[in-house]
Write a protein that binds this DNA or RNA. Sequence first.
DNA 1: GTTAATGCAAACCTTTTGCAAAACA
DNA 2: TGTTTTGCAAAAGGTTTGCATTAAC
Lengths: 137, 137
Amino acid sequence: MKPTEKADMKYTNQRVEILDFLREHDGHPTVDEVYDGVRKKLTRISKATVYKNLKFLTEKGLLEEVNVKGVSRFEANFIPHHHLICRECGKMEDFNSEQLLDYSMKIAEEIDGFTIVSTSTNFYGICKKCMELKEET
Amino acid sequence: MKPTEKADMKYTNQRVEILDFLREHDGHPTVDEVYDGVRKKLTRISKATVYKNLKFLTEKGLLEEVNVKGVSRFEANFIPHHHLICRECGKMEDFNSEQLLDYSMKIAEEIDGFTIVSTSTNFYGICKKCMELKEET
DNA sequence: GTTAATGCAAACCTTTTGCAAAACA
DNA sequence: TGTTTTGCAAAAGGTTTGCATTAAC
Protein backbone atom coordinates (compact mmCIF):
# COMPACT_ATOMS: atom_id res chain seq x y z
CA MET A 1 0.00 0.00 0.00
CA LYS A 2 1.26 3.46 -0.82
CA PRO A 3 1.06 5.43 2.43
CA THR A 4 0.66 8.73 0.62
CA GLU A 5 -2.55 7.53 -0.96
CA LYS A 6 -4.31 6.45 2.18
CA ALA A 7 -6.42 9.60 2.33
CA ASP A 8 -9.95 9.57 3.64
CA MET A 9 -11.62 6.46 2.42
CA LYS A 10 -14.10 4.25 4.17
CA TYR A 11 -13.25 0.61 4.64
CA THR A 12 -16.63 -0.82 3.75
CA ASN A 13 -17.25 -4.56 3.66
CA GLN A 14 -17.39 -4.44 -0.12
CA ARG A 15 -14.09 -2.64 -0.39
CA VAL A 16 -12.35 -4.92 2.08
CA GLU A 17 -13.62 -8.06 0.34
CA ILE A 18 -12.48 -6.82 -3.04
CA LEU A 19 -9.01 -6.05 -1.70
CA ASP A 20 -8.83 -9.37 0.15
CA PHE A 21 -9.95 -11.27 -2.89
CA LEU A 22 -7.27 -9.68 -5.03
CA ARG A 23 -4.60 -10.24 -2.42
CA GLU A 24 -5.51 -13.92 -2.28
CA HIS A 25 -5.76 -14.40 -6.03
CA ASP A 26 -2.58 -13.48 -7.83
CA GLY A 27 -3.80 -14.75 -11.19
CA HIS A 28 -4.87 -11.23 -12.23
CA PRO A 29 -8.65 -11.59 -12.07
CA THR A 30 -10.98 -9.83 -14.47
CA VAL A 31 -13.88 -7.63 -13.32
CA ASP A 32 -16.26 -10.57 -13.62
CA GLU A 33 -13.96 -12.87 -11.72
CA VAL A 34 -13.71 -10.33 -8.91
CA TYR A 35 -17.47 -9.91 -8.93
CA ASP A 36 -18.12 -13.66 -8.82
CA GLY A 37 -15.48 -14.18 -6.16
CA VAL A 38 -16.66 -11.43 -3.87
CA ARG A 39 -20.32 -12.38 -4.32
CA LYS A 40 -19.66 -15.64 -2.53
CA LYS A 41 -19.28 -13.68 0.68
CA LEU A 42 -21.35 -10.62 -0.09
CA THR A 43 -24.24 -12.05 -2.06
CA ARG A 44 -25.98 -8.72 -2.51
CA ILE A 45 -23.06 -6.72 -3.88
CA SER A 46 -23.80 -5.04 -7.18
CA LYS A 47 -21.54 -5.07 -10.18
CA ALA A 48 -21.57 -1.27 -10.23
CA THR A 49 -19.97 -1.32 -6.79
CA VAL A 50 -17.28 -3.65 -8.06
CA TYR A 51 -16.61 -1.34 -10.99
CA LYS A 52 -16.61 1.75 -8.80
CA ASN A 53 -14.23 0.20 -6.29
CA LEU A 54 -11.82 -1.29 -8.80
CA LYS A 55 -11.56 2.14 -10.39
CA PHE A 56 -11.35 3.94 -7.08
CA LEU A 57 -8.75 1.60 -5.62
CA THR A 58 -6.67 1.77 -8.78
CA GLU A 59 -6.74 5.57 -8.65
CA LYS A 60 -5.78 5.48 -4.99
CA GLY A 61 -2.83 3.30 -5.92
CA LEU A 62 -3.96 0.21 -4.03
CA LEU A 63 -4.45 -1.81 -7.19
CA GLU A 64 -2.84 -2.03 -10.56
CA GLU A 65 -4.75 -2.55 -13.78
CA VAL A 66 -3.22 -4.62 -16.56
CA ASN A 67 -4.64 -5.71 -19.86
CA VAL A 68 -4.33 -8.91 -21.83
CA LYS A 69 -6.01 -9.40 -25.18
CA GLY A 70 -8.28 -6.44 -24.57
CA VAL A 71 -9.48 -7.60 -21.16
CA SER A 72 -8.81 -5.60 -17.99
CA ARG A 73 -7.30 -7.50 -15.12
CA PHE A 74 -6.40 -6.36 -11.63
CA GLU A 75 -3.65 -7.12 -9.19
CA ALA A 76 -2.70 -6.05 -5.70
CA ASN A 77 0.97 -7.01 -5.89
CA PHE A 78 3.15 -3.93 -5.70
CA ILE A 79 6.48 -5.61 -5.48
CA PRO A 80 8.00 -4.91 -8.91
CA HIS A 81 7.79 -8.05 -11.01
CA HIS A 82 7.40 -9.43 -14.50
CA HIS A 83 4.65 -11.29 -16.32
CA LEU A 84 4.38 -14.56 -18.17
CA ILE A 85 1.62 -14.26 -20.72
CA CYS A 86 0.07 -17.03 -22.78
CA ARG A 87 -0.63 -15.89 -26.32
CA GLU A 88 -3.26 -18.61 -26.69
CA CYS A 89 -5.51 -18.30 -23.66
CA GLY A 90 -4.48 -14.95 -22.18
CA LYS A 91 -3.43 -16.47 -18.88
CA MET A 92 -1.04 -14.27 -16.93
CA GLU A 93 1.34 -15.23 -14.14
CA ASP A 94 3.77 -13.24 -12.07
CA PHE A 95 7.46 -13.87 -12.51
CA ASN A 96 10.22 -12.52 -10.31
CA SER A 97 13.71 -11.61 -11.39
CA GLU A 98 15.54 -9.01 -9.37
CA GLN A 99 18.39 -9.34 -11.86
CA LEU A 100 16.22 -8.32 -14.77
CA LEU A 101 14.72 -5.41 -12.88
CA ASP A 102 18.19 -4.12 -12.09
CA TYR A 103 19.35 -4.59 -15.64
CA SER A 104 16.33 -2.77 -17.07
CA MET A 105 16.66 0.16 -14.68
CA LYS A 106 20.28 0.49 -15.67
CA ILE A 107 19.25 0.67 -19.32
CA ALA A 108 16.57 3.18 -18.37
CA GLU A 109 19.28 5.64 -17.37
CA GLU A 110 20.12 6.09 -21.04
CA ILE A 111 16.61 7.15 -21.98
CA ASP A 112 15.95 10.76 -22.95
CA GLY A 113 12.61 12.55 -22.83
CA PHE A 114 11.08 10.17 -20.32
CA THR A 115 11.72 10.03 -16.59
CA ILE A 116 11.50 6.32 -15.90
CA VAL A 117 10.42 5.18 -12.45
CA SER A 118 9.79 1.49 -12.95
CA THR A 119 9.99 -1.33 -15.46
CA SER A 120 8.30 -4.61 -16.10
CA THR A 121 9.05 -7.25 -18.68
CA ASN A 122 6.43 -9.32 -20.41
CA PHE A 123 7.40 -12.82 -21.45
CA TYR A 124 5.14 -14.04 -24.24
CA GLY A 125 4.69 -17.64 -25.11
CA ILE A 126 2.47 -20.64 -24.64
CA CYS A 127 1.50 -22.07 -21.28
CA LYS A 128 1.77 -25.76 -20.47
CA LYS A 129 -1.95 -26.39 -20.80
CA CYS A 130 -2.26 -24.77 -24.23
CA MET A 131 0.88 -26.54 -25.37
CA GLU A 132 -0.62 -29.89 -24.45
CA LEU A 133 -3.83 -29.04 -26.26
CA LYS A 134 -1.82 -28.21 -29.37
CA GLU A 135 0.10 -31.46 -29.24
CA GLU A 136 -3.08 -33.51 -29.01
CA THR A 137 -4.26 -32.40 -32.44
CA MET B 1 4.74 -9.34 -42.37
CA LYS B 2 4.64 -12.95 -41.37
CA PRO B 3 4.75 -14.98 -44.61
CA THR B 4 2.88 -17.87 -43.01
CA GLU B 5 -0.09 -15.66 -42.35
CA LYS B 6 -0.53 -14.30 -45.86
CA ALA B 7 -3.38 -16.67 -46.65
CA ASP B 8 -6.30 -15.69 -48.86
CA MET B 9 -7.22 -12.16 -48.06
CA LYS B 10 -8.32 -9.38 -50.34
CA TYR B 11 -6.25 -6.27 -50.44
CA THR B 12 -9.08 -3.77 -50.49
CA ASN B 13 -8.46 -0.05 -50.46
CA GLN B 14 -9.66 0.14 -46.88
CA ARG B 15 -7.33 -2.59 -45.73
CA VAL B 16 -4.34 -1.15 -47.55
CA GLU B 17 -4.97 2.32 -46.15
CA ILE B 18 -5.27 1.00 -42.60
CA LEU B 19 -2.02 -0.91 -42.91
CA ASP B 20 -0.27 2.06 -44.53
CA PHE B 21 -1.52 4.39 -41.87
CA LEU B 22 -0.20 2.17 -39.10
CA ARG B 23 3.12 1.69 -40.83
CA GLU B 24 3.53 5.47 -41.12
CA HIS B 25 2.42 6.22 -37.56
CA ASP B 26 4.50 4.47 -34.97
CA GLY B 27 2.87 6.26 -32.06
CA HIS B 28 0.48 3.33 -31.47
CA PRO B 29 -2.79 4.86 -32.70
CA THR B 30 -6.14 4.07 -31.11
CA VAL B 31 -9.14 2.86 -33.14
CA ASP B 32 -10.43 6.42 -33.41
CA GLU B 33 -7.07 7.72 -34.50
CA VAL B 34 -6.87 5.08 -37.22
CA TYR B 35 -10.43 5.90 -38.28
CA ASP B 36 -9.76 9.64 -38.43
CA GLY B 37 -6.47 9.13 -40.21
CA VAL B 38 -7.79 6.75 -42.85
CA ARG B 39 -10.90 8.84 -43.42
CA LYS B 40 -8.75 11.63 -44.84
CA LYS B 41 -8.13 9.43 -47.87
CA LEU B 42 -11.22 7.23 -47.83
CA THR B 43 -13.92 9.64 -46.73
CA ARG B 44 -16.71 7.06 -46.92
CA ILE B 45 -15.08 4.33 -44.83
CA SER B 46 -17.22 3.18 -41.93
CA LYS B 47 -16.01 2.68 -38.41
CA ALA B 48 -17.27 -0.92 -38.49
CA THR B 49 -14.85 -1.58 -41.33
CA VAL B 50 -12.02 -0.13 -39.28
CA TYR B 51 -12.97 -2.36 -36.33
CA LYS B 52 -13.36 -5.42 -38.53
CA ASN B 53 -10.03 -4.87 -40.18
CA LEU B 54 -8.06 -4.08 -37.06
CA LYS B 55 -9.38 -7.29 -35.58
CA PHE B 56 -8.84 -9.29 -38.75
CA LEU B 57 -5.32 -8.00 -39.33
CA THR B 58 -4.39 -8.62 -35.71
CA GLU B 59 -5.63 -12.21 -35.98
CA LYS B 60 -3.72 -12.64 -39.22
CA GLY B 61 -0.61 -11.46 -37.42
CA LEU B 62 -0.12 -8.29 -39.47
CA LEU B 63 -0.79 -6.02 -36.52
CA GLU B 64 -0.19 -6.13 -32.82
CA GLU B 65 -2.65 -4.84 -30.27
CA VAL B 66 -1.40 -3.21 -27.11
CA ASN B 67 -3.27 -1.60 -24.30
CA VAL B 68 -2.50 1.46 -22.21
CA LYS B 69 -4.78 2.64 -19.45
CA GLY B 70 -7.61 0.53 -20.80
CA VAL B 71 -7.36 1.85 -24.36
CA SER B 72 -6.53 -0.42 -27.29
CA ARG B 73 -3.73 0.74 -29.53
CA PHE B 74 -2.32 -0.84 -32.66
CA GLU B 75 1.09 -1.12 -34.19
CA ALA B 76 2.60 -2.65 -37.31
CA ASN B 77 6.15 -2.86 -36.05
CA PHE B 78 7.19 -6.49 -35.71
CA ILE B 79 10.81 -5.95 -34.92
CA PRO B 80 11.02 -6.90 -31.24
CA HIS B 81 11.25 -3.76 -29.15
CA HIS B 82 10.33 -2.17 -25.85
CA HIS B 83 7.93 0.56 -24.83
CA LEU B 84 8.20 3.83 -22.97
CA ILE B 85 4.86 4.56 -21.34
CA CYS B 86 3.77 7.78 -19.68
CA ARG B 87 1.77 7.07 -16.55
CA GLU B 88 0.14 10.51 -16.82
CA CYS B 89 -1.12 10.78 -20.38
CA GLY B 90 -0.82 7.21 -21.65
CA LYS B 91 1.56 8.16 -24.45
CA MET B 92 3.55 5.22 -25.72
CA GLU B 93 6.81 5.23 -27.68
CA ASP B 94 8.96 2.46 -29.05
CA PHE B 95 12.37 1.93 -27.54
CA ASN B 96 15.07 -0.34 -28.92
CA SER B 97 17.63 -2.26 -26.94
CA GLU B 98 19.03 -5.39 -28.44
CA GLN B 99 20.99 -5.85 -25.24
CA LEU B 100 17.88 -5.99 -23.12
CA LEU B 101 16.13 -8.38 -25.51
CA ASP B 102 19.10 -10.73 -25.32
CA TYR B 103 19.27 -10.49 -21.56
CA SER B 104 15.54 -11.17 -21.15
CA MET B 105 15.59 -14.16 -23.48
CA LYS B 106 18.48 -15.58 -21.51
CA ILE B 107 16.44 -15.27 -18.33
CA ALA B 108 13.48 -16.83 -20.13
CA GLU B 109 15.44 -20.06 -20.45
CA GLU B 110 15.02 -20.59 -16.71
CA ILE B 111 11.22 -20.43 -16.87
CA ASP B 112 9.21 -23.58 -16.31
CA GLY B 113 5.65 -24.24 -17.46
CA PHE B 114 5.73 -21.60 -20.20
CA THR B 115 7.43 -21.85 -23.58
CA ILE B 116 8.61 -18.28 -24.12
CA VAL B 117 8.97 -17.04 -27.66
CA SER B 118 9.45 -13.31 -27.19
CA THR B 119 9.81 -10.61 -24.60
CA SER B 120 9.14 -6.92 -24.32
CA THR B 121 9.95 -4.56 -21.50
CA ASN B 122 7.73 -1.67 -20.49
CA PHE B 123 9.43 1.39 -19.05
CA TYR B 124 6.97 3.38 -16.98
CA GLY B 125 7.48 7.00 -16.12
CA ILE B 126 6.55 10.52 -17.05
CA CYS B 127 7.09 12.02 -20.48
CA LYS B 128 8.74 15.38 -21.00
CA LYS B 129 5.50 17.19 -21.73
CA CYS B 130 3.72 15.92 -18.60
CA MET B 131 6.80 16.65 -16.53
CA GLU B 132 6.77 20.27 -17.68
CA LEU B 133 3.07 20.57 -16.91
CA LYS B 134 3.72 19.30 -13.39
CA GLU B 135 6.55 21.74 -12.81
CA GLU B 136 4.38 24.71 -13.85
CA THR B 137 2.00 24.21 -10.95
C1' DG C 1 -18.72 -15.60 -61.67
C1' DT C 2 -17.46 -16.54 -56.86
C1' DT C 3 -16.12 -15.22 -52.79
C1' DA C 4 -14.83 -11.86 -49.53
C1' DA C 5 -15.33 -7.19 -47.74
C1' DT C 6 -17.96 -2.88 -47.15
C1' DG C 7 -21.32 0.22 -45.06
C1' DC C 8 -25.21 0.98 -42.63
C1' DA C 9 -28.10 0.27 -38.68
C1' DA C 10 -29.33 -2.50 -35.05
C1' DA C 11 -27.83 -5.29 -31.36
C1' DC C 12 -24.57 -6.14 -27.69
C1' DC C 13 -21.67 -5.87 -24.41
C1' DT C 14 -19.03 -3.33 -20.79
C1' DT C 15 -18.59 0.59 -18.03
C1' DT C 16 -20.38 4.81 -16.00
C1' DT C 17 -23.82 7.78 -13.82
C1' DG C 18 -27.77 9.66 -10.99
C1' DC C 19 -30.00 9.27 -6.95
C1' DA C 20 -32.44 7.67 -2.78
C1' DA C 21 -31.31 4.56 0.96
C1' DA C 22 -27.82 2.58 3.92
C1' DA C 23 -23.34 2.30 6.10
C1' DC C 24 -19.33 4.18 7.94
C1' DA C 25 -16.53 7.17 10.97
C1' DT D 1 -24.70 13.64 12.36
C1' DG D 2 -22.32 14.48 8.17
C1' DT D 3 -20.18 12.34 4.50
C1' DT D 4 -19.13 8.52 1.73
C1' DT D 5 -20.65 4.41 -0.39
C1' DT D 6 -24.08 1.21 -1.95
C1' DG D 7 -27.46 -0.79 -5.09
C1' DC D 8 -30.52 -0.29 -8.53
C1' DA D 9 -31.85 1.13 -12.97
C1' DA D 10 -31.01 3.99 -16.70
C1' DA D 11 -27.62 6.02 -19.80
C1' DA D 12 -23.49 6.14 -22.28
C1' DG D 13 -19.55 4.21 -24.81
C1' DG D 14 -17.34 1.12 -27.36
C1' DT D 15 -17.44 -3.02 -30.21
C1' DT D 16 -19.71 -6.52 -32.84
C1' DT D 17 -23.17 -8.42 -35.99
C1' DG D 18 -26.61 -9.18 -39.87
C1' DC D 19 -27.43 -8.40 -44.31
C1' DA D 20 -27.92 -6.37 -48.86
C1' DT D 21 -24.63 -4.09 -51.92
C1' DT D 22 -20.12 -3.61 -53.81
C1' DA D 23 -15.38 -4.73 -54.83
C1' DA D 24 -11.63 -8.00 -55.47
C1' DC D 25 -9.65 -11.86 -57.67
